[in-house]
Computed example of a mutant assay.
Amino acid sequence: MTTASTRCYLGLGGNLGNPVSLFDEVIAHVAQHAHCRHHRESPRYESAPVDSSGPNYINSVLELDWAGSADELLATCMSTETALGRVRTVRNAPRLIDVDVLLFGQARIQTPSLTVPHPRMHLRRFVLAPLLDLNPFIEIPGLGAAKLFLPNTQDQVCTRI
C-alpha cells in the first residue's frame, strides 16, 4: 500500500564554503529518505545578502513529494544541515547551508518550531524566482499567486547561474 504524499518546497541557501556541492549533498540526503517520492531542483541563483552579511548567497528551491508529516520534513531538513556542518549562531548569520520548509502542500502551519508558508518567502526574490521556475502558477496559501509578489522584489540582486 502506498502512502499519499504532499507536494512540498524547500528553500536551499548558503554563502560559506562551497554551497553548490552542499546543495548536491542536501538533495541526495533528502532524496534517499523513505518519505521522499519524487524531487527536482530549480535553477540556482546568486543573490546579495538580505538581512545578513558576508559573501553573496547561492539559492535554489527543491520540489518534492513527501509521504511524511511536516514535522518529519522539518526534522529531515535540520538533521541534513547538521550533518553537513551547519552551526547555528546568531539569526541570519552567514552559513554553510540553510534548508527551509517553504510550503507543505496547501497547509498553513503555526507551531513553535515551524511556520508554513515560510513567513518571509513572498518578500524574497531569491525564493520567488526559483520557486516560479518550478511552478509559474504556484499559490502561497493565505497570500495568493506567488508571481504577484515578484515585482515587489525588483530591488534585490538575484541572478540565475
Rank of each mutant, 00 (worst) to 15 (best):
L143G: 04
F23Y: 10
T3N: 14
R160C: 07
T159H: 08
R124G: 03
S113F: 13
R160T: 03
D24V: 09
C158V: 07
T111K: 07
G13F: 07
L62D: 02
A4N: 07
H122G: 01
G85N: 12
G13N: 05
A107I: 01
T76G: 11
H39P: 05
P49F: 06
T6V: 12
H118Q: 07
D100L: 07
R91H: 15
R95P: 03
F23I: 09
C77N: 11
A75F: 09
H38T: 07
L143W: 05
L96A: 05
L62G: 04
G13D: 06
F104K: 00
A34K: 11
T115R: 15
W66H: 02
T2W: 15
A75T: 11
D155W: 11
P141L: 00
L22A: 14
V101G: 04
F137N: 09
S47L: 12
C36H: 01
D98S: 02
G13E: 01
I27L: 08
Q154W: 12
H29D: 12
P112H: 09
V61K: 06
Q32N: 12
N135Y: 00
S79Y: 13
A67N: 08
L123S: 07
G13V: 05
L150K: 10
D155M: 10
D133I: 00
T80I: 12
R86M: 10
I138V: 04
I138W: 00
T111V: 07
T80P: 12
L96T: 10
D100P: 00
L64F: 06
A146F: 13
A146R: 11
N135R: 02
S113V: 13
R86N: 08
V20D: 15
Q106G: 08
V30W: 00
P49H: 06
L10M: 06
M1H: 12
V101K: 01
R37N: 04
